[in-house]
Design a binder for these strands. Sequence first.
RNA 1: GGCCAGUUGGUGAAGUGGCUUAACACACUGCCCUUUCACGGCAGCAUUCAUGGAUUCGAAUUCCAUACUGGUCACCA
Length: 545
Amino acid sequence: MTNKDLAELLYPNVTKTIEDYEKMYPERNLTENSMVTRFAPSPTGRVHMGNLFASFIPQVFAKQSNGVFILRIEDTDGKRAIENGIELILDDLKNYNYQIDENPIDGGNYGPYIQTERKEIYDCFAKYLVSIGRAYPCFCSEDDLEEMRKEQEEKKERIGYYGKYAKCRNLTYEEVKKHIDNGDKFVIRLKSLGDFNKKIIFKDLIKGTIELPENDLDQVLIKSDGIPPYAFAHVVDDHLMRVTHITRDDSYISSVPYHIELWKAFGFKIPKYAHILPLCIKDGTTIRKISKRKDPEAAISFYHERGIPTEAIKLYFATLLNSNFEEWYLQNQDKSYEDFTFTFNKMSTSGSLFDLEKLLNISKNYISKLTKDEVYDNLSKWASIYDHDFYDLITKYEDYTKEVLNIEREQKKPRKDYASYSDIKNQTFYMYDELYNPKEYDWGNITDREEIKKILTLYMEKYFDISDKDIWFDKIKKLTEELGYSSNMKEYKENPDKYKGSVADISTVIRVAVTSKSMTPDLYAIMKLLGKNRVQKRIDKITEK
RNA sequence: GGCCAGUUGGUGAAGUGGCUUAACACACUGCCCUUUCACGGCAGCAUUCAUGGAUUCGAAUUCCAUACUGGUCACCA
């Protein structure tokens, strides 16, 4: 009996051949440098920062090379899948404007994109390996394997199903048939030709040349439930989907020799591998891979709630991805990260620490460069979900809010007050009567109540003028002089004893009376927007007390 | 335990044998600008690249050993 007969015995219903599938999924018609990449998560929940970063990479490379980016769902482990897992992942990725050319929901010509829907394809490929003598059925039970493991541990030998421990490797056709007729469960295993004492050398796009021992383990190709584990599935899928560049977590690196053996067994062209380092986080003194369960800041909802722009997060990813990006971006402020050419060899070979501080800084710069309309739109989108009261307020006063947001914006050196949209309310509350209800005033140098009243009363009676910024400040200077303060800061600093105080003190009093805060953006812009009546009311509140 | 990788300031890092008395950015500190704050400008912040040894006229960069960190050794991905 031949291997072909064995293949027929195991897979009597598989009639298609690999050639049939190759015809169904032909080579893609792309230019030579175009990359076909993919992100292949398990549907175990919402995307977190680690995933988002991991998917950013293949997406960027596909896009910048006019290639194809695929989302494939690896749900071969039924135990871990959750309901709606696929929709949630796709939603999250689309929220970041990732261009996903092929995915389970919108489809594509190289699907299905869900592994459990590809069972008949895997069967065909497994049947092929059996038919050429590179795979065989294994009827060992979990107990058998456990026993084997114990023996290996005792003898201090390598653990695994290989060499003399691969009991089912030499089963005869008759023995197999007896098991099958019996209805015994089985897995399909690779008949490995590797030698653990020999080395295999391969080139990783990020880590460079790596030398590892060959695989000699008869790994499981098809589980007893008929579904393949990751390794076999990814080879079949990436080949049929014509993936050119496999980006994946660096923890796979030690199984590359096995994967290469698989590619070679089929005789397929091996795609390029790029093993990426995970995002890390500092946990006390140790640095470890970011974890969905332990780290609240790993959840992307954390950033959404705070109102950190998705663009800022992508900019941060870009700086982590290629260390030379940051400098380039600094010199090309008007450009998008998509105009930058990312390369694999500029990627870090050690895990990068996720730094919220840095993210916030990038976000601050990003928001500062937006126009008032853009900020307003983003703010309103954010507030409509996370702050309904504020949303109602800014919607009611849309044009006014835009002007508030425009204070010292849309100029060469815009203010960088907001790192996130949730910062805005706390920093602009005094621009809204509905939010302005000061309990305390943060007075500066002048604390004498009567003096404050005197300054404010005189100001409103004689010097208030918001027709023009220069005039406005000239009047404040006049007020300053009339009260015996210095209107010239240089002079005041040279002879502070000659005066009661300076124009800075007077300005502060007005500023605090109007906003309750001693630190604000341009006071003139604030007063201009508030208008005389509201300024008068706020000042009355203090002078009348 | 076997195998693999990594180790440059508080942080992300540049750096591939002389241009490095280690770039750039974040953070921090000080000064300047300034009606406050912010912005901006300037300056400071690793004499040293985990440790020890070797090669070399010359090493963060090459080699060897040690230490530490991470990964991996499933019918999980």
